[in-house]
Design a protein around this nucleic acid. Structure first.
Lengths: 209, 209
DNA sequence: CGCAAAAAGTGGTCTGACCAGTTAGCTATT
DNA sequence: AATAGCTAACTGGTCAGACCACTTTTTGCG
């Protein structure tokens, strides 16, 4: 038995699909071959191809548009959190855990930015600070998203996006005036590299939940 | 047409499947209705049912046995990590991100334990400390696992387990003698509630990666 | 050249069939 | 009566084809 055990077809399709994406340098947003083309290319039936595609769609890795085609997802997977949470995290504590895990990723991003001179010098922080000063409308999640992006850990960003999508059930409104001061301190602290102050401002901003 | 937006069928099946599991109190390890029964019960075709089941199987939430039936999975989703990582983390930086994200969860667990008098008084720490003193064999991941468990965030634990499984490719050997001192300091610092010292010992222990 | 109609392409769903394992019930033998 | 073995029913795995709904491309008319 030196060959593959020849498992389930749709799993092989998933595997070959990944190889196809790698080999053909398919980028997020690009179009994938149609289901019927994949049938022929992978020498299987459309059912198996669809089972694989639907699985990847539920994972948020691809996006299918009726009549349009199938595309490699650029940002992914709010589906994943919903499904996973509804199956795994049925306990009462789940909501709390999601929130805590999200905060963990946000705080870590802030720590990384504070500790890196280059990161905390990014123009985005000045831009955000200016927006706050001008009393422009701004969403709190937008700032945190920038932080997580800037931190540079793509896996963490992926996880955060999913957690954020999940916690959007009780969607946050825009930043209130009273929160702006804490937010400004957060940004300034980040720019100065003051980790403790930044974390403290973050806690203040998020309402010490 | 006052009815629902009528999304994709297989997503509706996933949803109704979840409701079925909740309503009928189906526990992990229990058998699910057969595909043909689900067709009739959910008033749809077997294709759509299969697309939903295959998706949940790829997520590691159910397990299908050829000729046997479909069962609710008892432990979840190491499949998930493989699939997600092979699709999302194709870049060179991916390994690094997995490691960093894993460390994030570990450090946060340590912080939580340090900050909670009750948690850091758990007998498990004395037990681990004793094992180290006695030069007994112990795996580094075993200690970290206890920390993440003790921290009490089940979602974080879930994520950590998956990241750990992924990074097991280059599996860690047992704790070396030189690392034991740092490990002892880590545990003692946790018990005393010294967050900074604990994190520092952790960094020392993990080799300042 | 512009635009609308037609055609081709694509995903979404359903039906029916057959194969390949597993399970369970029922003989037939001891 | 108990049990071993075999058959029939059940279940997941795969395939083929058809039709619908929607999008994109092509075509042809003004």
């Amino acid at each position: 038995m030196e060959q593959k055990p020849a498992k389930k077809m749709f799993l092989q399709v998933v595997k070959q699909l990944r190889e196809l994406i790698v080999d053909q340098r398919i980028q997020p947003g690009d179009k994938l071959p149609s289901e019927r083309v994949l049938c022929e290319k992978l020498n299987t039936s459309r059912s198996s191809v669809r089972e694989a595609l639907r699985s990847l769609e539920l994972l948020g890795l691809i996006e299918s548009r009726h009549g349009g085609g199938t595309f490699l997802a650029d940002v992914g997977g709010h589906q994943l959190v919903e499904i996973l949470s509804s199956f795994i995290l049925r306990e009462e504590k789940s909501q709390e855990d999601v929130h805590a895990t999200r905060e963990m990723h946000e705080k870590e991003a802030i720590r990384i930015i504070c500790a890196d001179q280059e990161l905390r010098s990014l123009p985005i922080w000045d831009s955000l600070f200016a927006q706050i000063e001008l009393q422009q409308e701004i969403k709190r999640d937008a700032i945190l998203r920038e932080c997580v992006i800037a931190a540079g850990n793509r896996l963490s960003l992926k996880i955060w996006i999913q957690l954020h999508a999940y916690s959007m059930t009780a969607l946050r409104e825009r930043v209130t005036v009273s929160e702006k001061q804490a937010l400004q301190i957060l940004i300034k602290s980040m720019q100065m590299g003051y980790i403790e102050e930044a974390i403290e401002a973050y806690n203040e901003w998020m309402g010490q939940i």
